[in-house]
Computed example of a mutant assay.
Amino acid sequence: MQQPHGTTPDVPEDPVGEGADPGPGRPVRAGIPEHGRVPKYYAVKTELEALVDQLGEGGAVPTERDLAARYGVARETVRQALRELLLQGRLRRRGRGTVVAGPKLEQPLSLVSYTEGVRRQGRVPGRSLIGLDRRPAGQVLGGQLDIAADDPVWHLERVLLADDERVGLESTYVPVARFPALDREFDPDSSFYAYLRERLGVRFATAEEKIETVLATPREALLIGTPPALPMLLLHRLSRDTGGRPVERVRSLYRGDRFSFTTRLSGD
Rank of each mutant, 00 (worst) to 15 (best):
T7A: 02
D10L: 15
V11R: 03
D14V: 15
P15N: 06
G17H: 03
G19Q: 06
A20I: 03
G23K: 03
P24G: 06
R26E: 14
R26M: 12
I32A: 02
E34Y: 15
G36Y: 01
R37L: 10
P39F: 13
A43C: 04
T46M: 15
E47C: 13
A50F: 00
D53G: 06
Q54A: 10
Q54H: 11
G59H: 01
G59N: 02
G59V: 04
A60Y: 08
P62T: 02
T63K: 07
D66P: 07
A68S: 10
A68I: 01
A68R: 03
A69K: 09
R70G: 01
Y71N: 01
A74H: 14
R75A: 07
V78G: 04
R79Q: 09
R83G: 09
E84Q: 13
E84D: 15
L85E: 07
L86V: 03
R90D: 01
R92M: 02
R92K: 09
R93V: 11
R94N: 12
R94M: 12
G95T: 06
R96A: 15
G97M: 00
G97W: 00
V100T: 01
G102F: 10
L105Q: 11
P108E: 09
P108A: 08
L109A: 07
L109Y: 00
L111H: 02
S113K: 07
S113Y: 10
V118P: 05
R119K: 14
Q121D: 08
V124F: 05
G126R: 04
L129C: 01
P136G: 06
Q139N: 10
Q139W: 09
V140T: 14
L145I: 04
D151A: 13
P152E: 10
P152R: 06
E165C: 08
R166I: 10
G168Y: 04
E170G: 00
S171Y: 00
P180Y: 08
D183W: 05
D183S: 07
E185H: 09
E185R: 11
F186H: 07
P188H: 06
D189V: 11
S191P: 05
Y193V: 09
L196C: 05
R197L: 12
E198A: 10
E198W: 09
F204Y: 12
F204L: 15
A205P: 10
A205N: 12
E209M: 02
E209V: 06
E209R: 09
E212G: 08
T213H: 14
V214L: 01
L215G: 11
A221E: 06
A221S: 08
A221Y: 05
L222Y: 13
L222H: 14
P227Q: 02
A229R: 12
A229V: 13
A229K: 12
M232C: 06
L235W: 04
L238M: 02
R240W: 00
R245Y: 11
S252E: 11
Y254S: 05
Y254R: 05
Y254M: 04
F259L: 15
R264M: 13
L265F: 13
G267T: 14
D268P: 15
